[in-house]
Simulated assay, not measured.
Amino acid sequence: MFDAIRPAHAPADHPKVKMGRVGILLANLGTPDDYTYWPMRRYLNEFLSDRRVIDYPAWKWQPILQSIILTKRPFSSGEAYKSIWNHDQGESPLMTITKEQTAKLRDTMRTRFGDQVMVDFCMRYGNPSTKSKVRQMVAEGCDRILFFPLYPHYAGATTATANDQFFRALMEEAWQPASRTVPAYYDEPTYIAALAQSVERAYAAMDTKPDILVCSYHGMPERYLQQGDPYHCQCVKTSRLLKERLGWSGDRIISTFQSRFGPEDWLKPYTVDHVAELARQGKKNIAVIAPAFSADCIETLEEINEEIKESFEEAGGEEFTYIPCLNDDDSHIAALGTIIENNLRGWLD
């Protein structure tokens, strides 16, 4: 363990400090503490007040958010969370899975680097907060922190806002640790290989193979793309690389976008509408995968596996298979471990 010591050549009354460790801080979107009204309202208020997520002027957006959306949406969102809640652990599946991912990566990094590293996780919204985990790492002697947003694809509303919060936390430290942020890894070979393996494993268990694989990515307003956000291009490249890795040809894989919010046009095609159109075109057996999510959450377990599935079946679809996120699968942990080690070069070799 790293004990507090007095810096070399410091006077006798200098306080002892811990130093010399590297923190690896994983970050995911976040989760409410509970699915009841007030925890849901606090979570949604923090999330929907983020200017990276909703960039309307505050004078226009906040009255709508506080007086209309936050009086109704906590009830509907709470019901959705309740349907997928991990009641045994008293937490959302995203929290459970992120804990499992962190535990495995902690073991991996300690095997590789011993006590030189400290591995933990934080959430952009809700608990544990980014600020609290940065503070803890500094207190435990981390004078370098590698911050890893668990989003394969860069978007202002995911990667950028996670980094923003990390930098805000650093602003409050008297002695700031050196810091690095992990870039998007949408085309990393180990990540693509893990995705392909999950598809192959799911298909091997089926008696009849799906007509098409739908890669459903979280959506965003189209104007974000026009403003220079690379998310759409990175998603499309992931689908192409996945198809190449699987050795498939033709249109057996398509990219769609889910989770629309508000009146604007979002990235198209919309998953919920397109799966219905596939059913009407005679594609009665489809599989859906969500490559942009590192862990199963409300958008996959409830939106894809319930709402989007229902849209497909109501349009005449017969077989709908949701392929889970990579979660704490060993191939995923290995991929994340490789990315971490690559980004630690020069700090730990």
Rank of each mutant, 00 (worst) to 15 (best):
F166M: 02
F166L: 03
F166A: 05
F167V: 12
F167H: 08
R168L: 15
R168F: 11
R168M: 13
A169F: 04
A169P: 02
L170W: 00
L170E: 03
L170H: 03
M171Y: 13
E173K: 05
E173R: 02
E173W: 02
A174E: 12
A174H: 13
W175D: 03
W175Q: 13
W175N: 07
W175K: 03
Q176L: 05
Q176C: 08
Q176E: 05
Q176S: 02
Q176R: 10
Q176I: 10
Q176T: 12
P177L: 07
P177C: 15
P177Y: 02
P177T: 05
A178Q: 08
A178S: 12
S179A: 09
S179W: 13
S179H: 14
R180M: 03
R180C: 06
R180P: 07
T181Q: 00
T181S: 15
T181M: 06
T181R: 10
V182K: 00
V182W: 04
V182Y: 06
V182M: 13
V182D: 01
V182N: 00
P183T: 09
P183F: 14
P183I: 04
P183R: 08
A184Y: 07
A184S: 15
A184T: 07
A184P: 10
Y185T: 04
Y185D: 06
Y185C: 04
Y185P: 09
Y185M: 03
Y185V: 04
Y186I: 03
Y186S: 11
D187G: 01
D187F: 02
D187H: 07
D187I: 02
D187A: 11
D187K: 03
E188Q: 08
E188K: 08
E188A: 09
E188N: 09
P189K: 07
P189I: 13
P189E: 13
P189W: 07
P189C: 00
T190G: 06
Y191E: 04
Y191L: 06
Y191H: 05
I192M: 05
A193I: 10
A193M: 09
A194I: 13
A194W: 06
A194E: 15
A194L: 08
L195P: 06
L195S: 12
L195Y: 03
A196Y: 13
A196R: 08
A196M: 09
